[in-house]
Design a protein around this nucleic acid. Sequence first.
DNA 1: AACGGCACCTGGTCGC
DNA 2: TGCGACCAGGTGCCGT
Length: 277
Amino acid sequence: MPELPEVETTCAGIRPAILNNQISSLVIRNYNFRWPIAPELPVLIQDMKVHEVYRRAKYIVLLLSQGSLILHLGMSGSLRVLDSNIPLKKHDHIDINFIDGTCLRLNDPRRFGAVIYTTEPIDQHKLFQHLGPEPLSQSFDAEYLTSYCRIKNQNIKSVIMNAQIVVGVGNIYANEALFLAGIHPETPAKSLTTKQASELCNQIKLVLITAIKQGGTTLKDFSSPDGKPGYFSQQLKVYGRKGLPCVNCQTLLQEVRIQNRSTVFCAACQRQQSENN
DNA sequence: AACGGCACCTGGTCGC
DNA sequence: TGCGACCAGGTGCCGT
């Protein structure tokens, strides 16, 4: 479910309810996430105040009075802000309760997500220290992307999905950005022209910004913390459209698997390059 | 060192 | 209708 725009939407949705709020209790109904949740976590964060709520890559970070709580939604996680007396749904595994009666409830059917407490500075945490720049930051630009393309023996899709190079570009938006930039996903990164890298960089930013404005992409059952769906799915041009006509040229869209992920493209609009730069 | 593939889970869909 | 096979938005880690 959640790629960067979904996490951003979630972050913005929960912030007003929990910023400067004080945690009264933590209820864990299932400890078995990607990494087992520390049994002492409720004691550790009880009575702490939330001083900041922000996103880094696809992680949501709650900066507390002491230390930070790191949340990751994995493939199927979602957070809702509600009253703590609202009945539980299936897979509601964790409640963070606040003194004003607010409850931040984590639902995650597949439990690929994570809940981690750390007292380290976030950037030094093991999960964060090798992360590349944010795609919407100025440090992610054509020159930067080109420099990585030159040294990687991989196709371009794998490069833009590599979190050490740039964070937050998941499968859906990788597919979309490559289509919008007119680049075949299997193009060797090394053969990208400067112009193509520049176009790709711009389209990655554009598609993410557009999706954030629309509240993310609703596939299956993603919804933001207030329960509203995202509307970006209506604008997907290639993802999930294998065999359907290209929105530009009507050529039937093809699918290949890259790193075992569904990769849909238009063979006419995204031609493999035969000549190098 | 760098890369490809696996693993972690549940649930939805598709074909028989 | 039922059952099994297969697929899904992420990503750290393992083996090669």
